[in-house]
Design a binder for these strands. Structure first.
Length: 841
DNA sequence: TGATCCCGCCAACGT
DNA sequence: ACGTTGGCGGGATCA
């Protein structure tokens, strides 16, 4: 898989050559910066100013204000800072915009300033990339960076080429819930711990030992499969969809967010994040260059997330020294809940009025979000299906394409909206099950392994609030079922003593709490007072930094000596050293290559590292409930649906499938909800866990409406579903005018069924996107009978259960429970144990 | 210096 | 064949 990425490029040589070749540019060195803007930039003279101004522009402000009211006001402040700096600064950069000015963070702020956090349904916010790029005066490439991250949060969705729809934060809470869930399922918590542990042990060197350990620790099997899965997936994907899209920034962004959501302190260091991400997707090769690249990407993502104020940069001081890290400052993720209300609340204020409606839109839009595909698809049959679906989807998407550019900068493009005709807004999801077994097994194994790590103590406590087990517990909870068994055995292995680690002495194993302690017993968390926004941070930082820093220091003081000592003392600082080495190596291109190869070999041997498939997770949508379940997991199919509430409908109907079919492909359930959210196929695949509890798949609802027949017909016609299959219809399908109420937001309940393995889910959107949203909302029927999810469980599910011993059910349920409580106190408790210092920049 | 991360080549994808 | 996306990593800046 490694190959997947630009294979060609890999050749270092090629790179260098290329660069050199470049015409104008100077040789290797980066193109002359100086020249750039000035000359090139039409706006140049004032470009900077313009930028700033734009940020400050009234229009923008007004928009911003909205947000600000709710949450932030920082942007402005930041902008001001920027200005000030400029002013104060000599000529400033205006002549040349300083790097900061060009920072992704700042750019992102500008970008965000253009759109309301909670767009109303009415105003459709279309985003035309070209336009935006032009207005912001940046290359399109940069816009992609922003959009990709936003997409990972479902704040935007791609409509067509060059066109995206802005959803703002409507879906954010759900997305976060889903991400959290997936993160839990993936056991990120444990992974984090492991990594930390390792670090202590031997830092960076990537010698075989470590790898081995990791592999083992992680559970070899799992990884292997994962990796396997991906590859194939990739392959097809490539054909069908773009492999890479799903792959990286988007996925990375989601994973990164997951790390925050599952971490107790909610502080994640780049290093750890990079390692986990690397490990996941691919094996981990410690290859330094790879690591470095990952870090670069993480900075990109972090800048955007910071602009969104979801995270903020801090420094964690450990024994080893300070490490750059980010602290989650976004809304707390609630458990899974279905409550719609929560959603809104969480972030900031609920938007005024109309908002409810929008949600729907978004939902629908979201549905498709991904192009991603499913990660895993393996079966040919599945693949085909997927492709077909994708194609359809594309067509659909593409159709609307006509990008209308709205010139106006801020404007909202309302005018632009094309009216559409309503269509049948039906969205169908398919969930296919691949073979989940593997995943499950893997997971199990994994879990076992992990469990080991966990301290025994911890284990027992199931879901107890994290509080009890501070740090990393969350994860623990989940696996209750799973954990117990294995951990004992493994643990020894994992445990601590590492040779390298010796110096470090103490550490515990990762298991939760201890873990914390472990490393650095001395961490202290400092709440950071100020929040900087990322992008700008630099700016602010100047001012603020000192302060903060000092504070940090002071606090640390106590610790400091220690840590400093420790760091220094340790002669053998592996981490650093190793890292350096790595760098050097990297420099030597050849070497790298060799290494990579080497690694790859190793990897191949042990594919295991990867836990999950990396899939882009889904959109959840507003719709609600879906959250948890669906998205997540690959394996699991979690279906969790959510239920929720209000409108949930029994939508989930099951498609009757013959057993054989199921086996072959799991298509457990077919759900159609207008609102549904869909999971991207990808998403599904991703989740490893098996939770089934949620699954509901199937079945159920049997009642079919007339509409159902239509639907079925349609689907079949389209080819989405096999002829024989029928999908129950929801009332929803029928267009019923409904008044939307805010709460309605969560309309449909969706049930999401995920099937294990990933399956691909396919969703169709029948209506046209552009127009839909509005209509959509109108259409949606309120009443849908709610069906308890639990009730519905398809046969398929059952099978799954079997497969997975670990018990999906438990997991999900647990997680849910845990979630609720978690966050609150954890931090507090936690603090003492670990000493972390967090300082802002 | 190390941390941060801009810049833009160029591959993969789409049309 | 060309346009859009976006992986990737050199090496400039910042701190």
């Amino acid at each position: 898989r490694s190959v997947l990425k630009t294979p060609l490029k890999q050749a270092a040589t090629s790179h260098s050559v290329l660069t050199e070749i470049q015409p104008d540019c100077q040789p290797l060195t980066t193109p002359p910066k100086p020249k750039e803007i000035l000359p090139a930039d039409p706006w140049t003279p004032t470009s900077n100013l313009k930028m700033l101004i734009s940020a400050a522009s009234p229009e923008i402000r007004s928009r911003e204000q909205r947000r600000e009211l709710s949450n932030n006001s920082r942007e402005v402040l930041q902008a001001k800072h920027c200005l000030q700096e400029h002013l104060s600064g000599d000529e400033y950069e205006k002549s040349q915009p300083s790097r900061k000015e060009k920072s992704l963070g700042l750019l992102c702020h500008k970008f965000l300033a253009r759109y309301p956090d909670y767009p109303s349904a009415a105003e459709n916010n279309y985003i035309c990339l070209d336009e935006v790029a032009e207005e912001l005066n940046v290359e399109r490439r940069r816009i992609y960076d922003i959009v990709n991250v936003l997409e990972s949060l479902h704040m935007v969705s791609r409509l067509a080429k060059n066109r995206y729809a802005w959803h703002g934060r409507h879906n954010l809470s759900k997305t976060l819930q889903a991400l959290k869930k997936v993160g839990e399922e993936n056991k990120y918590t444990q992974q984090i711990q492991m990594i930390k542990k390792r670090e202590y042990e031997h830092e960076f060197d990537f010698d075989g030992e470590r790898n081995e350990e990791m592999a083992r620790s992680f559970g070899s099997n799992e990884h292997s499969e994962m990796s396997f899965v991906e590859l194939p997936g990739m392959e097809f994907r490539a054909a069908s969809v773009n492999s890479r899209k799903d792959k990286s920034l988007r996925v990375m962004s989601q994973k990164f967010v997951m790390l925050f959501l599952v971490s107790t302190p909610q502080i994640v260091s780049l290093e750890v994040a990079a390692k986990i991400l690397i490990g996941e997707d691919q094996l981990e090769d410690l290859d330094k260059s790879k690591f470095k690249t990952k870090i670069r990407r993480l900075y990109d993502i972090a800048n955007v997330l910071s602009s969104l104020e979801l995270i903020k940069k801090v420094h964690v001081t450990e024994e080893r020294g300070r490490k750059p890290a980010f602290k989650w400052t976004g809304p707390d993720v609630l458990p899974n809940v279905q409550d719609t209300k929560l959603e809104t609340t969480s972030t900031s204020c609920p938007p005024p009025i109309s908002e409810s409606i929008p949600s729907k839109e978004q939902c629908s839009k979201n549905l498709f979000p991904s192009r991603g595909k499913q990660n895993f698809t393996r079966h040919p049959s599945l693949i085909k299906l997927v492709k077909t679906i994708e194609n359809d989807r594309r067509k659909i998407q593409s159709a609307p394409t006509s990008p209308v550019k709205m010139s106006a900068s801020t404007d909202q493009n309302l005018s632009a909206l094309p009216s559409k005709m309503a269509q049948v807004p039906a969205i169908a999801k398919h969930q296919l099950e691949g073979q989940s077994k593997k995943a499950k097994e893997l997971k199990l194994s994994r879990s076992a392994l992990e469990s080991n790590q966990l301290s025994p103590e911890v284990v027992p406590k199931p879901e107890t609030p994290r509080v009890a087990a501070p740090s990393q517990q969350p994860a623990l909870a989940q696996p209750p079922a799973v954990c117990p068994p294995s951990h004992s055995s493994v643990s020894p292995v994992i445990l601590p003593h590492t040779p390298a680690g010796v110096s470090y002495a103490i550490y515990l194993h990762p298991s939760q709490a201890h873990t914390v302690t472990t490393y650095s017993p001395s961490f202290m968390l400092q709440p950071v007072p100020c929040a900087n926004v990322t992008g700008i941070k630099s700016i602010n930082s100047k001012v603020l930094n000192k302060t903060t820093t000092e504070e940090g220091d002071n606090q640390l003081t106590t610790d400091d000596p220690t840590k400093s000592l420790t760091a220094k003392e340790r002669p053998p600082i592996k981490s650093e050293t190793s890292s350096q080495r790595c760098l050097k190596r990297s420099q030597a291109l050849q070497e790298n290559n060799l290494i990579k190869k080497y690694r790859s070999d190793e990897e191949s041997l042990d594919p295991s590292l990867t836990f999950f498939p990396s899939g882009y997770l889904i959109p959840l949508t507003q719709c609600t409930h879906g959250n948890k379940a669906g998205f997540s997991n690959k394996e699991k199919a979690g279906i969790c649906s959510l239920q929720h509430t209000t409108y949930s409908s029994p939508i989930a109907s099951v498609i009757p499938v013959t057993a054989s079919e199921l086996k072959a492909v799991n298509i457990p359930a077919f759900q159609i909800t207008p609102l549904n959210i869909m999971l991207s196929p990808t998403s599904i695949a991703a989740a490893p866990v098996l939770s089934n509890s949620c699954l509901n798949s199937s079945n159920t609802s049997s009642a079919q409406n007339p509409s159902s027949s239509v639907l079925n017909f349609t689907l079949q016609h389209i080819g989405l579903i096999p002829a024989g299959v029928q999908v129950p219809a929801n009332p929803v399908l029928q267009h019923m005018p409904v008044s939307l109420q805010p709460e309605n937001v969560s309309y449909s309940s969706e049930n999401i069924n995920l099937q294990e393995e990933k399956v691909s889910k396919n969703i169709l959107q029948l209506f046209d996107r552009d127009g839909l949203s509005e209509k959509y909302s109108a259409v949606i029927p309120l009443q849908q009978p709610s069906v308890p999810k639990e009730l519905q469980e398809p046969q398929t599910v059952t099978e799954n259960f079997f497969r997975t011993p670990g018990g999906p059910n438990t997991v999900s349920s647990l997680s849910a429970n845990s979630d609720g409580t978690d966050r609150i106190s954890q931090g507090t408790l936690y603090i003492p144990q670990r000493k972390l210092e967090v300082s802002e920049d």
